[in-house]
Design a protein around this nucleic acid. Structure first.
Lengths: 186, 186
DNA sequence: CCCGCTTGTGAATGTATAATCACAATAGAG
DNA sequence: CTCTATTGTGATTATACATTCACAAGCGGG
């Protein structure tokens, strides 16, 4: 039952969540033991989604760069549906006291970057991505295309065109990391 | 008196702030009318600091690229002292309801990017930065070097080496945006 | 030396919200 | 059709926090 209307990703507060699923606040506790549990469930869903993005992109593209680009675009789409991943990632609940929460967030992030990491490595092995680049840095640069854009998108309440930005940023990204190809098909 | 110990940037809550400045919670209200006012004051200080960074970098470097690099490094230093800009930027208080708060955050961000924007333009005019690149995208890429890194730094409680990352990211950034120089000094 | 202003204190109030509980509705198995 | 387990409800409690207020301490100027 963790799938109750994650549509849009709830803002904090049990009452708000309850309203969104057409329930009275106390009803929530029939499905989750505590707010903590809700939070972890949401984090799980975020992780699922991110990994599913990578998976899907992998299935559709052989070329690692194409694949990365697809992941980027999927991530952008994800940002645009779910209102508030950042809200969740930073907000009170997450960092309020206990480190286990932060730990969990970090774990999700790491899980995602590990996938990206793998993609980049493949790209390097296939000569599509410059071998002299530090993999971690490339992955961070990838996040750099999406995170600030997401924040801006959400600060402007959708006014910032994340999609267009992603397209432009991708070109710059390629300029920085793609290995110049000498021959079209050797 | 807005300067009372912004050292490290307070976590949310009047009580916490009071404790940090050696006061009893109610004492805070001798200096600020409300929590709102505290928030705005902090935002003001963040903005000041960011602009001061740009200013200082500008005074020390003629070359726009060197200047940008300096801004990057200063921003990194800023991240490392102040514990929680992100915490502030996203957290509850900011987005809780009223849009004026979000508006204010956005304004601070814009003010900063405007400065960066200007730097990039100068760089383009002087032939140091590729003219065909969209200025906005370059600025966002700049933020991309610092924002996710800051987040990671703060998720790992300082475990992530932001400085080293910034140095590596800068190289990639240059590879993407710097105009290849034909002659050392024409 | 005393008066008034600024700065600090402790107790008290109000509100938002997480969490609990006793009870009602409902549904599916027997 | 009835019984029991699941799911929903309203009232209630507990807690954390912002904010207020009446009062005390210190300090400068007349």
């Amino acid at each position: 039952m963790s799938l109750v209307a994650n549509q849009g990703l709830r803002r904090l507060s049990v009452a708000a969540l309850a309203r969104r699923v057409g329930l009275v606040p106390s009803g929530i506790y029939r499905h989750f033991r505590s707010k903590e549990e809700i939070l972890t469930a949401v984090l799980d869903r975020i992780q699922e989604r991110l990994l599913a993005n990578v998976q899907a992109a992998r299935e559709e593209h052989d070329d690692p760069l194409d694949c990365l680009r697809d992941v980027l675009m999927r991530h952008v789409r994800f940002i645009r549906e779910g209102r508030a991943i950042p809200r969740l990632i930073f907000s009170d609940d997450v960092h309020a006291g206990r480190p286990d929460r932060r730990q969990r967030v970090l774990a999700v992030l790491r899980r995602y970057t590990d996938e990206l990491d793998a993609l980049v490595r493949v790209g390097q092995r296939q000569g599509r991505i410059r071998k002299e680049l530090d993999v971690q840095t490339v992955v961070m640069a990838f996040l750099g295309m999406v995170v600030p854009a997401g924040i801006l998108w959400h600060l402007t309440e959708g006014g910032f065109d994340v999609t267009r930005h992603a397209q432009r940023a991708w070109k710059m990204f390629c300029a920085a990391v793609a290995e110049p190809q000498e021959s079209i098909t050797p």
